[in-house]
Amino acid sequence: MISVEGILFAAALFCCALATAGYLISLLVRRVALAKISTWILAAGFMLLTLNLLVAAVHWTGWSSFGSRHFLSIYAWVIAGIYLGLQLKTKTRLLGAFIAPFILLFLIAAAGQGADRNLVPSQWQGGLTTLHLVLAIAGEALFVLASAAGAMLLIQNNLLKNKKPGPLGRLLPSLGDLDQINHFGLLWGFPLLTLGMIGGAVYAAFVWGGSWPADPKVVWSFAVWVFYGFLLHQRLAIGWKGSRMAVLSCLGLIVFLLSALGIRFCLATVHNFI
C-alpha cells in the first residue's frame, strides 16, 4: 500500500540522491554553482524528510510503530539538518560532496527496512531509551560532520603543502574554515554522545543489573567515546590542530563505522537495530 509517509520518504530519497550526484559532479567539473544548486535540492529533501517524520509522529501508536526505517531516517535527518544549518553560517558548499553521500547511505539503508518492524522491544520502551537514542544519534552525526570536514582539510592541506593549489584547491574551503567545522563537530558531538551513553547506562543499570557491559556494542561504543574524548582533549588542552586532527577524526569515523557493521553482522547484540 502506498502511504503519504512512503511517498514523502521516496521523494526525500530522490532529492538526496540528486543532491549527492550534483555535489560529486560539481567536484569533478569544479563549478561551485552546481554545488549551490545541490544545496537547495538537499534542503528540499530535508524538508520532505521532516514532513515524513512529522507524518510518522502523527500516526504514532506507541513504541511498537517505531521501526528501523525511522531510526535510520532520523540519523540522516540530523546530519542533513546540521550540515544545512552550517551552510547558513559558512560558505562551504563543497562540504556537501563529503556529507551528502553519508546522508544518502543512511536513507538507502532506511529504504531497505520495513517501516513496520518493531525496533525497541516493548519491555525497554521509555523516556530514558528515547533520550539515549536521540542524543547518541546526534552525537554520532556531529562526528560524521567533523570527519567529513577533516577529509576535505587533508586534501586541501596536501594541495597547499605541495604548492599546487590549482582549481581543486580554489574550490575547496579554506583550512581555517574546515578546521573550525571539525572543532565544532567534536566540541558538540562529544557531550551529546556522553549524555546519550549515560542515559543508556543508567537505564541499563536499572533493567539489566550487572550483565550489560558485556554487550559488544557497548564495549565498542565506549572505545569510540574514549577515542573522541581523547581527540577533544588534545584539541582543547594541548592545541592540536589542522591535519593531525583531521587524520585522527577520519580514523575515528572509519573505526566507528567498521565496528558498527561488524557488530551488526558478526556478533550478537541487544543493539540490533539495522
Binding site: Q156, L160, P165, G169, R170, P173, S174, L175, G176, D177, Q180
Partner: peptide, 21 residues
C-alpha cells in the same frame, strides 16, 4: 578574471585559502 596574475595577489589568494577570512 578568476585567478590572480601577479605575485602579490597570488600570495593574498593563498592566505585566504589558508585562513578563510
Amino acid at each position: 578574471a578568476a585567478n590572480p596574475v601577479s605575485v602579490s595577489f597570488a600570495a593574498v589568494e593563498l592566505a585566504k585559502k589558508i585562513f578563510g577570512t
